[in-house]
Design a protein around this nucleic acid. Structure first.
Lengths: 347, 347
DNA sequence: TGATTTGGTGTTAGCGCTATCAAAAGCACT
DNA sequence: AGTGCTTTTGATAGCGCTAACACCAAATCA
């Protein structure tokens, strides 16, 4: 019997990684409980003991195991964020600020892409729930029934972003896409333009773009008008799609006087294409974008667009989760952040 | 004695969340081990039993607890990714593809921002290690000693991206920034330009930009030339910084014939500014960017730039981690992805 | 026929941590 | 000295899962 069970077990334990809390406790001459307290609620530990423990932690290069902590305490310090895609600057910006704020509070962010599909979102929610996150930040208010049910059952705080038009499950941080559409229509109308077109994502993919179109149409209807064209592009839409959108609009109605693009990258590439083709902007064709992206005010003519406070949305979403976790807020709440119509050269 | 310890404990357990594996086992009439096998290695379970268990899982809406799994098995299915910032499209793109690939293999990605600081990176590594990730993807090869030590001790596979010039700790997926600088210099020289300037990030922040500058200078030196100006901007650099860079270059040497910008967004905004000021590009001032961003070929004149395969880098980085984990690859390795100089209108 | 292998399943003992309670130590006051 | 209080520390029992092994029946072999 050269290999007792104990021996084998011990070797597995050692190979499993390294320094455990009990090693720190032994070195500091305390119990593991005291070490645990030094890490999570140091104010409960006498100064002298605390220093001893901290020294032991440093000496041994101890790194706590958050899985064990979660298992024992049911707190993961993880927030799950699901966005359509990180290659859209809008969402990348938002996530940037979510991560920034949550990092400061020692929460980790896990990220998933829904790829503009509710079903993929559902699968992600399912898989993220295995990590027992302390919060969820989703994009939009469009979800499958199962997604809603899973989240409700889990009892985790949920923040939905970017959609202030529809009812949220829990907490919502968004803006009114509908209102944005109306404001843009108003602008075009005020310039005496009536042949107005819209270029955006596919109806079944891009619900927030739908709302902008609806807003545009609603305002036009009030004047007895209607959009002369609506072009739907498959998401994701790279900048070059702006030119395709432009072409399709002009194919439908060559006399179009104004186009509202659902994102600035489309609008900018269309605008640059107009310059190239000698289509005068805004005299011949007015262009309005959405999002106030990087080069919106650098192109010639500068791009008229709707400015969306992505940073603010990210920060508010992160803070909403934090507030729910420390008990500052309880129930659902809706926050609408204001949009700003930036009247510039292109319209 | 109306409250036995057992009662209290049971109530805590129940409140802690919900359905456990043992509940599934009970319902399916098996042991927990069999349930566990159905989830992780279903081929080991008889078809009939498997179906029983799967039904029980569905009936109960069972969601496994990954913390318990990690604790018992030492596999987290987490990959930690640290980039300077998600608001730089370059890194957002890279992360997009990392997430996309890893999602398919049911790995979760946790994200952190170093904000171009080695010290912040060190803190992030420290905190991410608590989650026992199965892999790390870092940006660049510049790290603190403690960062290196922590990662080495942890035994986790590490991939460093974006830097093919320097030695990596473990696995590296990058390109040669130095070579990029040389290629751009070569291009300018071939057009007979000699008064060449560089605009990039601050020397102590942006090591990869330094390498591009070094490459540029090295090639110029070979012709007995030197850069006429080097402008250093504080990171992060929003697009508007391109104009500031242009101004500072022209202040140092008004006769500058060519500028190499360390990122396309700077180059594009500078180019648009030249148009506005009536500086003729490329006749009066040649401009070259880096990265081949969205509008690089849409502006007039189109932007000459270096195309970097961000998508490929992300995919390769993710695959490198996966290969290490399933034992396909063992030791360190270095992969250099090729750059492409896109000669367009601006140079 | 018995010996051996195979496939399928169950039993046991942790993984590393924290919640909970108990207890000890210190202090002020009667 | 005894009482009640606060502050500080420790012992114990899990958290929910899987690794490792044990076991059993059926299949295969000599």
């Amino acid at each position: 019997m050269s290999e007792t069970p104990e021996k084998r077990l011990r070797s597995r334990r050692l190979s499993s990684g390294g320094v455990r809390m009990v090693d720190v406790a032994r070195r500091a001459g305390t119990s593991t409980q005291t070490v645990s307290r030094v890490l999570s609620r140091p104010e409960l530990v006498a100064d002298e003991t605390r220093k001893l423990v901290e020294q032991a932690i440093r000496d041994l290069n101890y790194i706590p195991n958050s899985a064990a902590r979660l298992l024992a305490s049911s707190v993961s310090h993880i927030v799950a964020v699901i966005i359509p895609s990180l290659s859209a600057t809008v969402y990348a910006q938002e996530v940037h600020h979510i991560v920034r704020v949550l990092e400061e509070h020692s929460f980790s962010v896990v990220i998933g892409h829904s790829d503009y599909s509710e079903l993929r979102e559902e699968r992600l929610v399912q898989s993220f729930l295995e990590r027992r996150p302390d919060g969820f930040i989703l994009t939009g208010t469009q979800h499958t029934d199962l997604t809603r049910q899973l989240l409700r059952n889990s009892g985790v705080p949920v923040v939905e972003t970017f959609d202030g038009d529809n009812a949220a499950m829990d907490t919502s941080i968004g803006f009114s896409n509908f209102e944005a559409g109306r404001r843009v229509a108003e602008l075009f109308l005020s310039r005496g333009l009536t042949r107005i077109a819209y270029v955006g994502g596919r109806r079944d993919q891009d619900f927030r773009s739908n709302a902008r179109f609806d807003g545009l149409r609603s305002r036009l209807n009030e004047e007895g008008l209607a959009p002369v064209a609506r072009v739907e592009l498959t998401l994701p839409m790279p900048a070059g799609d702006g030119v395709r959108g432009l072409d399709r609009v002009l194919a439908i109605d060559p006399l179009t006087q104004a186009i509202f693009f659902s994102a600035d990258n489309l609008a900018i590439s269309a605008l640059l294409e107009c310059n190239r083709r000698g289509i005068r902007v805004p005299e011949q064709l007015a262009i309005c974008g959405f999002g106030n992206y990087d080069f919106a005010d650098a192109v010639v003519p500068s791009l008229t667009t709707v400015s969306v406070p992505f940073e603010e949305i990210g920060v508010l979403a992160a803070n909403a989760i934090l507030a729910r976790l420390d008990g500052t807020t309880k129930g659902p709440s809706q926050t609408i952040v204001p949009l700003q119509l930036l009247r510039r050269g292109s319209a």
